[in-house]
Amino acid sequence: MLPADMVGGVSAARAADLEASGEALSDFVSRVDTVLRDLEESAGSPTKVGAQTIKESSLSSGLASLFPEAQRLFAQYNNVHEQLTSLSKTLHLQIEAIGIAVKGASVGFDNLEEGQRRRFWAIQWEIEQIQDRASVEHAGNGTGLKA
């Protein structure tokens, strides 16, 4: 049996500590938006990370038998590049979702614009898809890197 001062599994004192003022939430949303904007403008944006590729011919003439180390280096570079691109995209999506969630915490999720609620759930789905692909790749060879 829960003590009399427990509300939803949390004591009344702790529940009061968890309440956030509208001003604090607005400030946090502003900071999240700034981080998201800074990420978009940085070299770490998903678009910019994805564009930083090299051609296989940059490392060798393309004949694996002449320089197999170059082929393996190219393959490893591509694996790491794909992981960094995925990480950058996931980070970007999570920051965007946090911004929407904080706005929802401030005004109530049901009071968000329909477009924001749909975007939040689309982000959740997209992150889940990225994580599922990473899990499959990781399970395939035990390293998280493609063979």
Rank of each mutant, 00 (worst) to 15 (best):
L2W: 15
D5W: 09
V7W: 08
G9R: 07
S11I: 01
A15V: 07
A16S: 11
E19A: 15
S21W: 06
G22T: 05
S26N: 10
S26W: 05
V29Y: 04
V29H: 06
R31Y: 08
V32Q: 05
D33F: 04
D38Y: 04
D38E: 13
E40F: 03
E40A: 14
E41G: 13
E41F: 08
S42N: 05
A43R: 09
A43T: 05
G44N: 09
S45Y: 02
P46N: 04
T47R: 13
K48S: 03
V49I: 04
A51W: 02
A51P: 01
Q52A: 10
T53R: 13
S58Q: 07
S61L: 06
G62K: 03
L63R: 15
L66W: 10
F67H: 10
P68G: 05
A70K: 04
Q71A: 13
N78V: 05
N78M: 09
V80S: 05
Q83M: 11
L84S: 00
S86K: 11
S86Q: 11
S88L: 02
S88F: 00
L91I: 09
Q94P: 10
I95Q: 08
I95R: 06
A97Y: 01
I98A: 13
I100C: 01
A101T: 08
A101S: 11
G104F: 00
G104L: 02
A105L: 13
V107S: 05
G108W: 00
G108V: 00
D110W: 07
N111W: 02
N111P: 02
F120E: 03
W121Q: 14
A122C: 00
Q124N: 10
Q124S: 09
W125H: 15
E126C: 01
I127Q: 07
E128H: 15
D132P: 04
R133Q: 14
A134R: 14
S135M: 13
S135T: 13
V136Y: 09
H138W: 11
A139Y: 06
G140E: 03
G144P: 04
G144M: 05
K146R: 15
A147G: 15
A147Y: 11
